[in-house]
Design a protein around this nucleic acid. Structure first.
Lengths: 160, 160
DNA sequence: AGTGAATATTTCGACCATCGAAATAGTAGA
DNA sequence: TCTACTATTTCGATGGTCGAAATATTCACT
């Protein structure tokens, strides 16, 4: 009302909240469409991501670790793994040291899907962020870390 | 390796991608726990959010609009609405002008749940962002908008 | 060693969210 | 009025998830 046409934008808290919500909505939708294109459900995609992260760290996942990472019951985890194994994305290995345990290993096919998932998005992100200077990146990183911590904390209050 | 102890952090693209992923993961988890605490599924929460946004704009939602907003079939939408109506969160109104159409209106109870959902998180966000200056906020807003656009665009390539 | 408690994973039966197709109700145009 | 179309709901089937029970293995203690 009182601003001129060349007034700079006022980025209120409400604007930031709205942007965060849009971002999560769009991310969800992206994952949903990607999964649909590959015959994978959300849970399967999440499972692949967790297993892949663990593999990158050199520590193979077990079904029970996966269950707690995904907040799934043990039985639901078994059927997720059944689906992924049937589709040829991973295979189960009995642990050599503790034969109760199962180690989850990925097939190259899944790695390829992961790459297909993340590469285009990563490249497009890089392009979007290309002109950001170091100081700006630190600002954004601080913002993101603060927002993550806020989310975690409020969630913590929910579960006593 | 070559940096001194007081070297400032290098925020690479990889770091930003990781932070974005953590943020969406934590948001998902938060919504999941909140829904659990109130006997609402993810879909129900999403539906409430969409209906609430529409109500705020003054344009009541119809089931079919909701269906396309949530990417649900018409029949699935009916059962979402059945659940929400049975739980007393909303009620259906036949449109006065076109009696095929149904208008979705919320009960105060649902508004209250929405407030309970967003207020604590909003306050905690505001606290996290309190010390950000205007220039920094503009930087963050540009970053978020760029990332949202990137996500939308890559998704667009998926669906021809 | 050997028994029993604990842990890891899978199987089984049931529940319910979602889907597609058909049914119902209403509108608009000829 | 008859027909085509739109909006929503109902119905039957599919499948992801759960809790409880079953199976296999390890650990602790004697």
């Amino acid at each position: 009302m009182s601003e001129g046409a060349d007034e700079v934008e006022q980025v209120t808290d409400d604007v930031l909240v709205l942007l965060l919500r849009q971002l999560t909505v769009e991310s969800d939708r992206f994952a949903e469409m990607f999964g649909e294109a590959h015959g994978l459900h959300r849970t399967d995609l999440n499972a692949l991501a967790v297993i892949m992260d663990a593999a990158r760290m050199g520590a193979p996942m077990s079904p029970s670790m996966l269950a707690s990472a995904l907040h799934l019951s043990a039985s639901a985890t078994t059927s997720v793994l059944d689906r992924l194994e049937r589709a040829g994305h991973l295979y189960r290995d009995r642990s050599a040291t503790d034969r109760r345990k199962v180690e989850l290993r990925m097939h190259d096919q899944a790695r390829q899907i992961g790459a297909e998932f993340f590469l285009p998005l990563g490249e497009r992100y890089a392009a979007a962020w290309r002109d950001m200077g170091e100081e700006e990146r630190r600002t954004v990183a601080r913002f993101l870390r603060g927002s993550i911590a806020a989310t975690v904390e409020v969630r913590g209050r929910l579960a006593p």
